[in-house]
Design a protein around this nucleic acid. Structure first.
Lengths: 225, 225
DNA sequence: CGGTGGGTTGAGGTATTTCAAGGCTCGTGG
DNA sequence: CCACGAGCCTTGAAATACCTCAACCCACCG
């Protein structure tokens, strides 16, 4: 259950025309593609924000760094997600490919041009920014007020909702990424992930009564499955 | 230093026409005013977002609540700030007056109408949402990765930048608010606030050399000043 | 003048971090 | 083919930053 995958996830639809350009048959928008190997930087914090990106395959993390190396991942971008959309001239996060990733990209400039004439596109720009804001707001609550267990549980639920590949949930990111997303250490994230995993396994099997069955001791797992 | 004030802060300029309507002499926008007593709710989470607000005098906190009462304040709104601006139909925070507060308010509907014709207004709507987003992103880093001392220091710096009344910083919010903003408990927030206060007092007096003068032992303060 | 609502401070408890070790998988090179 | 190291995950034990509980002070107010 929720094993980690390093290879590329299944294909998806999702075109960049989710900017709401169903109206016009996307005129002067150039739609390039690019691929990044695992761990490669897509753009850096403070760099000029010339492009807007959409994940075609793979997964991306975007984060801020403190001078001493502490890292806070603000969001994971999965297949279909749009990221790197800025209002100011610079990126406020660094974005990296978590696994081998290909992105579609459009020149931000051209997008803004379209937005000026097409109110629909402008509306979608705003609505995209708003959903980023909403996610950030929810994440503030998580980071400020939830316990480590609640954070990991919330993370698993979020991922379950977003990348329900089929039956099993295949997380593209490593423990360190999860920890840096949840404001925890790698070790606590790992500990609680396995704790939830065995709990869920129990539920899947047959809901043991509360004096737990002595035969299935959770700490003594000999079966590596 | 940074004492708390309960009475109303000094006057400010700041009109709601910071929506960028310098172009048109704000046509059909109705501009009402309303005042709230200390602690009163301005709007609640999940309530329909029919109005957009601007603080005329006073201060506002907007927060999310967990079912068991844990609270995360997402932002403080000070004189001149605009808040309650939503894209969806509902508010995502509860907003309360921290002190006696008067706000200006406009019907959101009318604002949207203007935005549809006036691209400048639409742009400003986006830019306002973006600065909310930026604040939330920075706050995620603070909540997820900074120590309690760093959080309190960051808070004081933020407030210093935003409400430099004159010389002294007069915080409108109580310790509990500060704590709930910083993801700490009331007690730690208080402890660190006074710790920073005495540190700053030292600096203001005469910058002691690094082997601190034995006469001024920080733990043995007999002078309550 | 007692009560209430902040604010401060201390002492003890605990959730989470830190430090450390070991296991597993996978790719590389002998 | 197997040894080897690197990267990742897991787990335990000790340390600690922060929280909890509790007391006290002070200003304000009916």
């Amino acid at each position: 259950m929720f094993a980690r995958i390093t290879n590329d996830p299944p294909s998806h639809p999702g075109v960049l025309c989710e900017f709401g350009m169903a109206s016009v048959p996307n005129p002067q928008i150039t739609l390039n593609e690019y691929t990044y190997k695992k761990g490669m930087e897509i753009f850096g914090e403070k760099e000029p924000a010339d492009y807007v990106y959409q994940v075609k395959t793979g997964a991306v993390r975007s984060y801020k760094l403190l001078s001493d190396g502490r890292r806070q991942i603000g969001a994971f971008h999965l297949v279909g997600d749009i990221f790197g959309l800025e209002n100011g001239s610079e990126h406020r996060f660094t974005a990296e490919a978590i696994v081998h990733t290909t992105v579609r990209l459009v020149k931000r400039r051209s997008l803004e041009l379209v937005a000026q004439s097409d109110a629909m596109v402008a509306r979608n720009l705003l609505s995209m920014t708003t959903s980023n804001l909403q996610h950030a707001e929810d994440h503030m609550l998580l980071l400020g007020r939830k316990t480590s267990l609640e954070r990991v549980a919330a993370f698993l639920l979020e991922m379950d909702k977003r990348l329900t590949a089929a039956g099993v949930m295949a997380l593209p990111m490593c423990r360190r990424d999860i920890a840096d997303y949840l404001g925890l250490t790698l070790e606590t994230a790992a500990r609680l992930a396995v704790a939830l995993q065995v709990s869920l396994d129990w539920l899947a099997f047959g809901m043991p009564r509360f004096p737990l069955p002595p035969s299935t001791d959770p700490t003594a797992r000999k079966d590596p499955r």
